[in-house]
Design a protein around this nucleic acid. Structure first.
Ligand SMILES: Nc1ccn([C@H]2C[C@H](O)[C@@H](COP(=O)(O)OP(=O)(O)OP(=O)(O)O)O2)c(=O)n1
Ligand SMILES: [Mg+2]
Ligand SMILES: [Mg+2]
Length: 784
DNA sequence: ATCCTCCCCTAC
DNA sequence: TAAGGTAGGGGAGGAT
C-alpha cells in the first residue's frame, strides 16, 4: 500500500494542480525525493560502489517476502539504492509480489520484479537478469500508460470535508501555534534554560534587594534572627495563570466564573457521523471511567465488552439528545476561582464545565500575553536572587537562604513584597507557599491560593498533612491514587502508619519510600541547578487522519523537520530515535468524540540507534520512515505520531557545555558500565588496572587525569586525542545512571547533589564512522 | 544483584 | 468543531 500511493503522485499533480493546490504538494515531494537521493549517494553509494546492486535503485510496492526493510538493508549492504517513494526518474526497478488489477495495464516500461530477484542474486553473489523475475510476464502486458484508480477517490476526498487536516502544508506549525500544551511545555524548557544562563553569569546584581530592605523598615515586624540559617524554600505560582493574564484588560469579567478555551461558550458540536455525538462521547467517557481495565498488555482496548458499553449508554440516549448541541469537547486550560467554586477544574471539557457552571464565560487564548507575563515574573524574581528552579512558565521554586540573610527580611516579609512586586509589574496575582523543604513549600501554596501566602511550620506540618488526601502529594495522580484507594489508603495519615515493606510490594520500591517520607513531611530534595536536557521530542496526537501511506510519510517528513529544528535550537544531536504512534483501539469508533481527536487508542513505539549522532531532518525522516514500516500499522487507524530523540550529544562549540574551571583533581575512578555493543566489554581486570593507576585510556594512549580539561557536568565526555584533550562532545547521564562510590559502595542516584560528582567517558570514535564506539564511564568525587 | 529497554505515569 | 505536548521519574521483566 505504500506503493500505489507513491506512484500515483505524479498523475495527481498533473490533474489537480490548479484546483487543489497540489502543485506545491508535488513540488515539495519531488524536492524531498531528490534530497533523499542525494543523501543515499553521499553516504552509501560511494562507499559501496563495488556491490552487486550498484546502479540498481528499487522501490518496494506493498507486501514482499522478505519485507521491505530487509530489502532496504540488502540494498544498502550491496551498493544499491532503496527508495521510500516511487519516482519514475530515480527508480530502476519496482519490487512487488503482485500488482493490483487496476495497475497492471497501466505500466509500460516499468520493470516490476519479484523480491526473489534480490534474494537469489545475493545467494548467487551476482546480479541475475531481472527478466527472469518479472511479476508480469511480457506477453501479458499491454501498452496502456500509467494512471491509477486511486485518483477518483482522491478527487472526491479532496473536495469533501473529510480532507485530512495534515494535508495543509502548515499543519504542524499551525497546530503547535494553537496548542496550549505545546506552549507551556516549550516555555517551561525555555525558562529552565534561562535560569541556567542566569546562574552562569559572573556578576550577580540583585537591584530589588535594596527595595526589599526599605520595605521591611517600614514594617513594624520584628526581624526573626534565628530563622536565618535554616533552610527555607518558597514555591511561587501565578493564580489561574491564563485567566489572570486574559483578564488584565477585561475588568468587567473579574470576579466572575471565567475559563480560557478554544470553544466559544460551549455550544460546539462534534463531527457528523453515523453515531450521534453523545453516543461517541459516552463511549469514550465510559472508557476513561474504566481505566483500571486498560493497559494490561498490548492491544487490549480496555473495553471489556464493546457491545455492552454501547447498550449501556443507549438507554440514556433520550436524555442526552437535547443537550447534544451544547456539549463542547474543548478543554479548559485555566478557570477562575469563581468557576472552581462550582466544581470546574483546569483540563475539564467545556461541555462538562457548562453543566456545572452554566454562567461560565469563556475568553480566548493569548499566548503572547502568557509569554510576556511569564518573562516578567522570572525577571522579577531574578532581581532578588538566582537561586531558582524553574518549574513551569507560571511557577518556580526559590532557595531563600541567601536573599533572606542578605536583606534581613523574614520569609513572610519577602513573600509579601515579592507578591506585591509581581502584581505591580504583571497585573496578575501570584501566591506563595513557604516551608523548610520543597514538599512543605508546595503544599503551603495550595493553602495560600488564591492571592495569598502561607508558611507551613514544620511543627504544624505533620498534623496538616495527616488530613490531606493522598492525591495531594506530588507524584500521586490518577493511577497511583486509584491503586492506593483500593489498598484503602485514603489520606496521608494512612500512609504515615503503613509498613514500608508492604507498600513497596504494591507500588514499587522508590515510590513507596518517597510517599511515606512525604506523608511525614520529609523531603530531602534540593533545587536542581544546572539542568541538562536528556531528550527532545515532537508529537502530535490531534488531527491525524491518513488514508495513504504517502500521507503518513509526508507528515513524518514534516515532523522530522520539526524535531531537527528543535535539536539544532539547543545544539544537540541524537543517537537514538523512537517513533511513537497512537492507533485506534480495536472496537473503538472510527469517529472520535472530540473533533479530530485521537479517541481511544493503543500506543506503539519502536526505536532505533544510529551510528553517528545527527540533527539532520533527512536522516531523521529516513529512520522514522523505516520504523513506520516496521510497525506497519493500518494507516487509516493512525491517530497520533511522535518522534523522540534520546542519547543526546552536545558538540563542543556548544555554549551549553560550560567552560567552568574547577581545577579538577581526580583521585578515584570506578568503571561503571560499558555501552551496548562495546567491542571489548569492561571486565574486572580492565577495571582494576584502570582504577589502580588512576589513568584513563584513550585509544592506544593513557593520559593522567591532571591533563584533562574541566568536566563540570555529570555525563559522558568525548575527548580529543591530542595534548590538551579538549572536549569534543558531551552526553548527559541518562536518568538511570548512578553515581558509584568505590569507598563505601554506596550507590546513589544522580541528583546533582552538592555538585560533587563528575563523570568521564572515554569515548573512542569509530574509525570508519560505521562501527560502534567503545565507551567507558568513570566516576570521580571532587570538592570544588 | 544490576543493567537495559520499553513502557506507564505525572506535572504543568 | 478543535488544536489531547512533552520531559523526566520510575516500574516490570528479561538479559547478563
Ligand atoms: N490541564 C492544564 C493545566 C494547566 N494548564 C495551563 C493553564 C494554566 O493557567 C497554566 C498554569 O497551570 P497551574 O497548574 O499553575 O494552574 P493555574 O495557574 O491556572 O491555577 P492555580 O491558581 O491553581 O495555579 O498551565 C493547561 O493548559 N492545562
Ligand atoms: Mg498557577
Ligand atoms: Mg503552575
Amino acid at each position: 500500500m505504500a506503493t500505489s500511493t507513491g506512484a500515483s503522485r505524479g498523475s495527481k499533480r498533473k490533474k489537480y494542480n490548479t484546483k487543489t493546490g497540489f502543485e506545491e504538494f508535488g513540488g515539495y515531494m519531488s524536492a524531498k525525493i531528490s534530497k533523499l537521493q542525494d543523501q543515499f549517494h553521499n553516504i552509501e553509494v560511494d562507499k559501496e560502489s563495488t556491490g552487486i546492486f550498484h546502479g540498481v535503485s528499487i522501490y518496494v510496492n506493498g507486501y514482499t517476502e522478505p519485507s521491505s526493510d530487509v530489502l532496504k538493508k540488502i540494498m544498502k549492504e550491496n551498493g544499491g539504492i532503496y527508495h521510500h517513494y516511487y519516482s519514475r526518474r530515480y527508480v530502476s526497478h519496482i519490487i512487488a509480489t503482485n500488482l493490483p488489477n487496476g495497475k497492471i495495464d497501466k505500466l509500460t516500461d516499468q520493470k516490476i520484479v519479484k523480491a526473489a530477484w534480490i534474494t537469489e542474486s545475493v545467494k548467487e553473489g551476482k546480479l541475475l537478469p531481472y527478466t527472469d523475475f518479472l511479476v508480469v510476464p511480457p506477453n501479458q502486458k499491454n501498452q496502456k500508460t500509467l494512471t491509477f484508480t486511486k485518483t477518483v477517490t482522491f478527487d472526491k476526498k479532496a473536495q469533501s470535508n473529510e480532507e485530512s487536516p495534515t494535508k495543509n502544508k502548515n499543519f504542524v506549525s499551525d497546530f503547535y501555534s494553537r496548542s496550549r500544551l505545546h506552549h507551556i511545555s516549550n516555555w517551561g524548557a525555555e525558562f529552565k534554560e534561562y535560569v541556567n544562563s542566569l546562574q552562569k553569569q559572573e556578576d550577580r546584581i540583585f537591584p530589588e534587594r535594596e527595595n526589599l530592605q526599605k520595605f521591611i523598615q517600614n514594617e513594624d515586624l520584628p526581624i526573626s534572627s534565628e530563622a536565618k540559617l535554616q533552610k527555607i524554600y518558597m514555591h511561587v505560582d501565578m493564580d489561574c495563570f491564563f485567566v489572570s493574564v486574559g483578564l488584565r484588560n477585561k475588568p468587567d469579567l473579574k470576579g466572575k466564573p471565567v475559563a480560557v478555551t478554544h470553544s466559544k461558550g460551549g455550544k460546539g458540536k462534534g463531527e457528523q457521523s453515523s453515531l450521534s455525538h453523545s453516543e461517541r462521547r459516552n463511549f469514550e467517557k465510559n472508557y476513561y471511567n474504566n481505566r483500571e481495565f486498560r493497559g494490561k498488555k498490548t492491544n487490549t482496548t480496555g473495553m471489556i465488552n464493546e457491545t455492552e458499553m454501547f447498550s449501556e449508554h443507549m438507554g440514556e440516549q433520550g436524555k442526552e439528545k437535547e443537550e447534544e448541541e451544547f456539549y463542547s469537547m474543548a478543554e479548559i486550560a485555566s478557570c477562575s476561582y469563581e468557576a472552581r467554586k462550582a466544581g470546574v477544574k483546569n483540563g475539564m471539557l467545556m461541555g462538562k464545565a457548562k453543566k456545572l457552571c452554566p454562567e461560565l464565560q469563556t475568553i480566548n487564548y493569548d499566548f503572547e500575553g502568557y509569554s510576556e507575563v511569564a518573562r516578567i515574573l522570572y525577571d522579577t524574581v531574578a532581581s532578588f536572587t538566582h537561586d531558582i528552579e524553574a518549574v513551569s512558565c507560571d511557577e518556580m521554586l526559590i532557595d531563600c537562604v541567601d536573599v533572606l540573610a542578605d536583606t534581613g527580611a523574614s520569609p513572610m516579609q519577602f513573600a509579601t513584597y515579592l507578591r506585591e512586586t509581581i502584581r505591580e509589574k504583571t497585573g496578575c496575582n501570584a501566591s506563595i507557599g513557604i516551608g523548610k523543604n520543597l514538599l512543605l513549600a508546595r503544599l503551603a501554596t495550595k493553602k495560600a491560593k488564591p492571592n495569598g501566602q502561607f508558611l507551613m511550620k514544620e511543627e504544624e506540618s505533620l498534623a496538616i498533612i495527616k488530613e490531606l488526601p493522598v492525591r495531594n502529594l506530588p507524584g500521586v495522580g490518577w493511577a497511583l491514587g486509584k491503586k492506593l484507594d483500593t489498598l484503602n489508603i485514603k489520606t496521608c495519615g494512612d500512609l504515615q502508619t503503613i509498613s514500608l515493606d508492604v507498600l513497596q510490594k504494591e507500588i514499587g520500591n522508590k515510590t513507596a519510600i518517597n510517599l511515606i517520607q512525604f506523608s511525614k513531611g520529609i523531603d530531602d530534595r534540593t533545587l536542581k541547578s544546572q539542568k541538562v536536557r536528556k531528550s527532545v521530542s515532537a508529537e502530535i496526537n490531534y488531527g491525524i487522519r491518513f488514508k495513504l501511506m504517502e500521507e503518513a510519510d509526508e507528515f513524518l517528513s514534516n515532523l522530522s523537520q520539526e524535531l531537527s529544528n528543535r535539536l539544532q535550537n539547543i545544539k544537540a544531536k541524537t543517537k537514538c530515535l523512537t517513533l511513537k504512534l497512537k492507533i485506534r483501539s480495536e472496537g473503538a469508533p472510527k469517529e472520535t468524540a472530540k473533533f479530530l481527536g485521537h479517541g481511544i487508542c493503543d500506543t506503539v513505539a519502536k526505536s532505533t540507534t544510529i551510528a553517528i549522532a545527527t540533527d539532520e531532518s533527512q536522516i531523521i525522516d529516513q529512520e522514522v520512515c523505516t520504523l513506520l514500516r516496521m510497525i506497519n500499522p493500518t494507516i487509516e487507524d493512525m491517530r497520533g505520531v511522535g518522534i523522540q530523540a534520546t542519547k543526546l550529544q552536545f558538540p563542543a562549540e556548544n555554549k551549553s557545555i560550560p567552560k567552568v574551571n574547577y581545577g579538577a583533581d581526580i583521585t578515584k575512578f570506578t568503571v561503571k558500565s560499558t555501552k551496548q555493543n562495546s567491542i571489548n566489554p569492561v571486565n574486572s581486570d580492565t577495571k582494576n588496572s584502570l582504577c589502580n593507576d588512576n589513568k584513563l585510556k584513550i585509544r592506544e594512549k593513557s593520559i593522567s587525569p591532571e591533563t584533562l580539561p574541566p568536566l563540570p557536568f555529570a555525563g559522558g565526555y568525548e575527548l580529543d586525542d591530542d595534548d590538551d584533550h579538549s572536549i569534543t562532545s558531551f552526553q548527559p547521564l541518562s536518568s538511570h545512571d548512578k553515581i558509584v562510590d568505590e569507598d563505601d559502595n554506596n550507590s546513589q542516584k544522580n541528583e546533582n547533589e552538592g555538585d560533587k560528582s563528575i563523570y568521564i567517558i572515554d569515548h573512542v570514535p569509530p574509525p570508519d564512522y560505521l562501527s560502534y564506539s567503545k565507551v567507558f564511564i568513570f566516576t570521580s568525587f571532587l570538592d570544588f
